[in-house]
């Protein structure tokens, strides 16, 4: 049951989007998010939407997966849209009791819903779906490298992320085992109200935490045995290298950004 939760949902592939350097992808995703908020009017949104549709098509990730990823946030999208619809002043379209819907309200609501939907699907396609967790941590480590001068523990942060990712499947498996063991002793996780169900989780969490700490201790010793001593004098098996493809991606994105800004200003 718990195994159905796919964390860090990465869909392996060989597409152009998959092959772009993770550092470039992270920056382009940030640029994309900023652009979504800068964009105004049909031209700006049109460019964003076209870029998104192109990325989805090229990455070969099925539309169903993308729509499914938006499902948990559907409520927020609808809620924001409705709120905007009623609260934006302007030319009145319909009015009843204290509520009034304006033309401007509807327009803003549509743009707002579109913006959130594009924000979610865009970041998923560009980052999580097409970048392996290791590449992602590598990218973050490289991008944060300048912070090392400020004594920020960049390497340690990346190592923590790698280990966390490494242990997610292990701990999920362990949770499953503990749940089965507690069920075998008559524990009930499914019935009762919210408080009762939360209380039923305690006998799962306590052994899980204890075991996680034990694992952490053993892992630390194993790492010491393999001469781990932080980032000092450390080399890497894989080094990120910019390819022509990355430069092309940057150039294309730059052109799109400029046109979105221009369309918003004019």
């Amino acid at each position: 049951m718990i195994k159905d939760i796919t964390l860090g949902q990465y869909f392996p592939g060989e597409s152009v989007i998959h092959r772009i350097d993770p550092r470039v992808k992270i920056i382009l995703t940030l640029a994309y998010i900023v652009m979504l908020f800068v964009a105004k009017g049909p031209i700006g949104y049109g460019i964003c939407l076209a870029a998104l549709i192109y990325m989805i098509a090229v990455s070969k990730i099925s539309l169903r997966i993308i729509l499914r990823s938006m499902k948990p946030l559907l409520f927020i999208i609808v809620f924001t849209a409705i709120l905007n619809m009623f609260y934006i002043p302007g030319r009145i379209l319909v009015e009843f009791w204290i509520l009034r819907i304006t033309y401007e309200g509807i327009e803003t609501a549509i743009y707002m819903a579109l913006r959130i939907a594009m924000l979610i699907s865009g970041t998923f396609v560009l980052l999580t779906y097409t970048t392996s967790p290791i590449m992602l941590t590598d990218g973050i480590e490289h991008l944060l490298n300048p912070l090392k001068k400020l004594k920020f523990p960049v390497h340690e942060l990346a190592m923590m992320m790698t280990i966390a990712l490494r242990f997610i499947p292990t701990l999920i498996e362990e949770t499953d085992k503990i749940m089965s063991a507690q069920k075998a002793r008559g524990a009930d996780f499914e019935s009762g109200n919210l408080i009762n169900r939360a209380r039923a989780l305690v006998p799962i969490l306590v052994p899980l935490f204890i075991s996680a700490f034990r694992r952490a201790d053993e892992l630390a010793v194993a790492m010491e045995c393999r001469c781990y001593r932080g980032s000092v004098g450390r080399t890497r098996l894989k080094v990120l290298k910019m390819q022509p493809l990355d430069y092309i991606a940057i150039c294309v994105s730059l052109v799109l950004c400029v046109s979105i800004i221009l369309s918003a200003v004019m």
Binding site: P133, I134, T162, L165, R166, L219, M223, C227, R236, L237
Partner: peptide, 15 residues
């Protein structure tokens, strides 16, 4: 330590 076999084997020489 790592999520991929070869990256894990590389851990000690990297250190």
């Amino acid at each position: 330590v790592a999520t991929v076999v070869e990256e894990d084997v590389a851990f000690a020489p990297e250190n």
